[in-house]
Amino acid sequence: MLLIPCPWCGPRDEAEFHYGGQAHVAYPADPAALSDEEWARYLFFRDNPKGRFAERWSHTAGCRRWFTLTRDTATGVFESEAGA
């Protein structure tokens, strides 16, 4: 079970969190201006790297805040931990 560093609560068990997928996929400013393909890219396409990945987490069983962390998907190590 991962130990996830919540920026508000500190390190907590993974079971307290919900995973939110890839980070920095912003809701388009003007969806109506996008082509079907561009909109589909926003809706359905996500990266799936082996290695560095910025991802969203929500501390649902704690402070209920959303935040972004970068994790190495191959090792499970969060960057803030690696840097500490």
């Binding site: 969806p31 109506a32 909109w39 589909a40």
Partner: peptide
Amino acid sequence: KADFVGKRSHARA
């Protein structure tokens, strides 16, 4: 409404 969550998808083919 100019937009709401899901609106753009209702215009997909």
